[in-house]
Design a protein around this nucleic acid. Structure first.
Length: 158
DNA sequence: GCCAACGTTGGC
DNA sequence: GCCAACGTTGGC
């Protein structure tokens, strides 16, 4: 039986990795998560086929720029073992890796993006983590209801 | 550029 | 185990 599809919001700074980069690459590995709660979501709850809202912080306008899909479940993030990587973590033991990543595939782009401002004023989205002040979690679960409301707010173009 | 919110670290 | 100090995130 197929795993029930879940939904996520994943944040990136466009200067680090943008929706355009994902469109160009087709698939990518989501390295660099260095927060335990975010890691636990990826490790415990993320499955192949899950939907991902691709969110950009640190740009104008802030918001959801596209959709991706999980294509590989969590596996060790080897950038943690690379001293030259900005994600290097000397405390992570290669024999028992602390940090994990997943692979994502490009699905679509929202043009225009669905802005944070729009999310904040759309009924039904009040519980979204990303609109709460001080919400820094880079991997957040999203309910199916929220996902469907957001799909109705923009036109995903591949 | 500022600064509030948050997670992590480390002294005790 | 507590909690102050610190570094980072991210909206403004």
């Amino acid at each position: 039986m197929a795993q029930k599809k879940r939904y996520w919001l994943m944040k990136s700074e466009p200067g680090t990795y943008s929706i355009a980069d994902l469109k160009r690459d087709g698939t990518t590995y989501w390295e660099g998560v260095r927060n335990y709660q975010a890691r636990n979501f990826m490790r415990d709850d993320m499955h192949v086929g899950d939907g991902v809202l691709f969110y950009h912080s640190q740009m104008q306008p802030i918001g959801i720029y596209g959709i991706a899909e999980v294509v590989r479940t969590a596996y060790p993030d080897d950038t943690a073992f690379d001293p030259t990587s900005k994600y290097y973590d000397p405390k992570s033991d290669p024999a028992n890796p602390t940090w994990l990543m997943v692979d994502l595939a490009y699905m679509a782009t929202f043009d225009p993006p669905i802005t944070l401002e729009t999310l904040k004023k759309t009924p039904g989205l009040e519980t979204m983590m990303v609109i709460q002040r001080g919400s820094r979690l880079s991997v957040q679960p999203v309910t199916r209801e929220v996902w469907e409301i957001i799909m109705g707010l923009g036109k995903p173009v591949s």
